[in-house]
Amino acid sequence: MSRHDWILLAGMMMAAALAFTLLHWWGTASQTEGLVLHVAAPAQTAAAGTENEVLEGLDGIRLEETTAAALEGMSMTRLEAAGEERYWQIQGAQGTLVLHFEPGRGIEILKAHCPDQVCVRTGFIQKAGQSIVCVPNEVIVSLQTPYKNTEKEDVDAILQ
């Protein structure tokens, strides 16, 4: 390795360290408090006939069949406050995905019909900016700090 390789290596490690620091600082500012769920999925496609495959091992679980649009903007604070586990089934590009919320742990993709299962193995997310991506299904689940109600400055008063 040449001297310049070493400089490059050090530079990359510093960039990564800096990015981690920024992320840590930003991500831990709030846990689930005040966060909302952001779910992006392809436009509703017909069920791919793979449901049985996906739903294996989910006996006794109350699945809520829903859409990404319905989950969009769901308040994590509200989910935590309700304090119960939730399971939502949504449609991806290749088949069904099962999202799982567990109080205190966050959101995960529990099951997904995709070859690599990267999304399932990502596990729980619970901080601002974290996301789970399922590339084959074209689904992104992430936690975001809500767009501050821009109307808030407009209102004359807030009814508490």
Binding site: M12, A16, A17, L23, G27, G129, E138, I140, S142
Partner: peptide, 19 residues
Amino acid sequence: LMGSKAVFYYLPWLLAWAV
């Protein structure tokens, strides 16, 4: 492709992994 900036959360890990 997914019209979401959320994935950039992974950037630090990807940079670190690149080393």
